[in-house]
């Protein structure tokens, strides 16, 4: 029992060590250590690697590099354009603010001017009205004085007539001169 198994194990080990192509067939061995397949794998690996290298260096890598740099360029360009537009917007805002300030100043100036004009006109009108009022009042005063004078004379006349009539009614011949003097005396008092 012992002999065949040890023999088999020994054979397997031998096969692995020899690596003569039997190792792969013996159970438990590593097919990777079957050196007879190595030239084959080396050859086909070399073919695969050379193919991949040619594909990469001739086609794939330059293309991807171009795409990436193009994208980078587009992004940079877009950013620059955005920056420019932003600058323009700031400028436009500044111009707008300046126009607004100008308009406001102009409006203030016009308001002030108009106010001054109106004030001047007003002053003039007041002055004129004052002068008119003064003239009118002087006139009125004169008229009043005249009326007063004329009314005093009328009163004196009436008083003298009345006095003359009263005296006459007493049956006495009235002295015109004495009556006038008395009336004048009375009216003064």
């Amino acid at each position: 029992m012992t002999t065949p198994t040890t023999e088999a194990a020994g054979h397997a080990a031998e096969g692995m060590a020899e690596a003569a192509g039997h190792a792969a067939e013996s159970a438990g061995g590593m097919p990777q250590l079957d050196f007879s397949t190595y030239p084959n794998q080396f050859f086909w690996l070399a073919v695969a690697l050379v193919l991949i290298y040619l594909i990469l260096s001739r086609v794939a890598l330059p293309r991807i590099e171009a795409v990436l740099s193009e994208r980078q360029g587009t992004i940079t360009g877009d950013l620059a354009a955005a920056e420019e537009l932003k600058q323009k917007a700031v400028e436009a805002e500044e111009a707008y603010n300046k126009a607004l300030a100008d308009a406001r100043a102009e409006a203030n100036r016009i308001v002030a001017e108009t106010r001054a004009e109106i004030q001047a006109e007003l002053d003039e009108a007041i002055a004129r009205a004052d002068a008119e009022i003064a003239a009118k009042s002087a006139e009125s005063e004169q008229a009043i004085a005249e009326i007063r004078a004329s009314s005093e004379k009328a009163i004196k006349d009436v008083a003298r007539d009345v006095a003359k009539a009263i005296v006459a009614s007493f049956g006495v011949k009235a002295d015109a001169r004495a009556i006038t003097a008395a009336v004048t005396q009375r009216m003064k008092g």
Partner: peptide, 23 residues
């Protein structure tokens, strides 16, 4: 050394995969 094997096949598929992805 020139015999096409299963290793050859799968290396070839790898190359095709590289072409599919990168090209």
């Amino acid at each position: 050394w020139y015999t096409p094997t299963n290793a050859t096949l799968w290396m070839g598929i790898a190359v095709l995969g590289v072409i599919a992805l990168l090209v």
